[in-house]
């Protein structure tokens, strides 16, 4: 692997809802990533992208989002669970790129009011990630009953999430390194 370049792992905050608790989860994971040596990260808020909704796919591509996905070696998607799946606007944003994602790692952080921590939304993501060319990892972070996990200011109340997020990031970083090695060195026959 080209060691000179840091691994780039942006965190995507996947909802535009006012008062979204997912923002606390995204800030927390972003903070944990910032502590990792050899990793550079940024927080991408889909609300700030303001993609047009009168078209779809590459036609609504945002140059900054596209550049961040091209730079990325892995992405963290922070997704709330809405009616047992992920938000439609998050899919709209992801659909705006394709070549940028190929052979890169993806990990999902689920956030929900219910106890399952977005598990159903995470499952729904799997076929989507596959078609986008992303490689899904087998660790997730599940922020269930999220209003008990963070206080109103986004302070973490339940510290088990530090260790869980560490495990998730360990696997994501491993996959990101392996896939970068592959993209750099292993040619398709």
């Amino acid at each position: 692997m080209n060691e000179a370049r840091l691994l780039s792992i942006p965190v995507i905050l996947g909802t535009t809802r006012k008062g979204r608790m997912s923002a606390h989860a995204a800030q927390f994971v972003f903070g944990q990533l910032q502590k990792r040596e050899g990793v550079t990260t940024e927080l991408i808020d889909i609300a700030e992208l303001k993609l047009p909704v009168d078209d779809a796919g590459e036609a609504v591509k945002d140059p900054r989002f596209s550049a961040a996905m091209e730079r990325a070696d892995a992405i963290v998607i922070v997704s709330p669970e809405y009616n047992h799946s992920f938000p439609g606007l998050l899919k709209h944003v992801l659909d705006s790129c394709l070549k940028e994602y190929i052979h890169k790692a993806a990990g999902i952080v689920g956030v929900s009011a219910g106890v399952f921590g977005g598990a159903r939304a995470i499952e729904h993501f799997q076929p989507v990630l596959r078609e986008l060319g992303l490689v899904s990892i087998f660790w997730d972070v599940n922020f269930g009953t999220v209003e008990k996990v963070f206080d109103g200011n986004g302070q973490l109340l339940d510290h088990v999430y530090v260790r869980r997020t560490d495990k998730f990031l360990n696997e994501l970083i491993w996959m990101a390194k392996v896939l970068r090695y592959g993209r750099e060195n292993i040619s398709l026959e």
Binding site: G57, E58, H103, G133, E184, S187, L188
Partner: peptide, 14 residues
């Protein structure tokens, strides 16, 4: 550059 994938694309904007 390293050619590492072939991916079918169905986006009609192509």
């Amino acid at each position: 550059m390293n050619r590492h994938a072939e991916k079918p694309i169905k986006d009609p904007h192509v």
